[in-house]
């Protein structure tokens, strides 16, 4: 009998210890507000030239200069775009979902390939969990405190439409990787070592993990810039070209449309991943209509 009591108590203690219930949606809870001092509207130029691509460091040529955003697109930027695009009629909202036209991809009928036909495609589901953008009185607005966080729950179609509207494009994998790595062979944008002070990754104990579990939430763009936030000291985790959040926080869509597959590739790793996923050459993938709480994007354009 006593043994049963001990086992029961231990089980209850174990269950209580691992319980981290989410009574209230993340985006509706109060979160710490920090000004990182990084302007999300800024772009940098990546000069043409070779770089070492991938894990095996293949010398790869990029024969043109291009510009790329210093940070991922924020909630504030995307909400502003939605209002603008809605006014112009390039997007429509139906059943709490945002749609826009996409001309479709060439279909090769390859194994596991899905056909992407021309038509209206999902850009953003406004009822998606973790989305900090909402439609309020016919306008799109950001929930308080989330303005400078990267936009998430945006599909590849939605990311492309945003970048198109800015006269740019989603960076290709090569453009993204060169901007992250520079011209040497480093594994992370800042070098070869990674700590929880470098990036928003799984169980990194950043101020946004308190109350949200090890997965935490996104951090404001440019958060890891060497500043201290309420005692949480970050390191300056810029890439050689001065880009922030090229490792961790949110996966970022890349713009390539490869033949024989409908998948779009993502780079950078996210707040939900361990450190090895944050290496500059690591990839994730999903269909272009997929959206998730840890997927965002940034844009590039020709110089």
């Amino acid at each position: 009998m006593n043994r049963m009591k001990v086992i029961t108590l231990m089980t209850v203690a174990l269950l209580a210890g691992v319980s981290t219930g989410t009574a209230c949606a993340q985006e509706n809870r109060k979160i710490p507000i920090f000004d990182t001092g990084i302007n999300p509207n800024s772009w940098v130029t990546v000069a043409k030239g070779d770089f070492f691509k991938g894990q095996h460091k293949k010398e790869t040529a990029v024969n043109y200069d291009y510009e790329i955003m210093v940070t991922p697109v924020t909630n504030a930027q995307y909400a502003e775009y939605l209002n603008s695009a809605s006014a112009k009629g390039t997007i429509t909202t139906k059943d709490n979902k945002v749609f826009g036209f996409y001309p479709g991809d060439k279909f090769h009928k390859y194994k596991h390939e899905f056909e992407i036909k021309a038509g209206d495609k999902l850009h953003m589901a406004l009822d998606a969990q973790g989305l900090a953008i909402e439609a309020r009185d016919g306008k799109f607005a950001v929930k308080s405190g989330w303005e400078n966080h990267p936009v998430v729950q945006v599909t590849w179609f939605g990311a492309k439409a945003y970048c198109d509207s800015k006269g740019g494009r989603i960076p290709t994998e090569i453009e993204w990787e060169k901007a992250a790595r520079g011209t040497d062979t480093r594994a992370y944008p800042w070098g070869n070592e990674i700590t929880s002070a470098h990036a928003n990754l799984y169980a990194s104990k950043d101020p946004f993990e308190k109350g949200f579990g090890k997965q935490g939430t996104t951090t404001p763009v440019g958060f890891y810039n060497g500043r201290s936030y309420n005692g949480f000291q970050t390191k300056d985790a810029r890439s050689p070209y001065g880009l922030y959040d090229m490792a961790g926080n949110v996966w970022q869509w890349s713009g390539d449309v490869f033949p024989k597959t409908h998948y779009r590739w993502m780079r950078g790793g996210s707040k939900s991943n361990y450190d090895f996923e944050l290496r500059v050459y690591n990839k994730n993938s999903a269909g272009p209509d997929f959206h998730e709480i840890d997927i965002g994007f940034r844009c590039a354009k020709n110089k």
């Binding site: 989410t22 993340q26 969990q129 997965q215 939900s272 998730e292 709480i293």
Partner: peptide
């Protein structure tokens, strides 16, 4: 379970 709710 969605990624959003998966932590527990």
């Amino acid at each position: 379970v969605s990624t959003y709710d998966q932590q527990p």
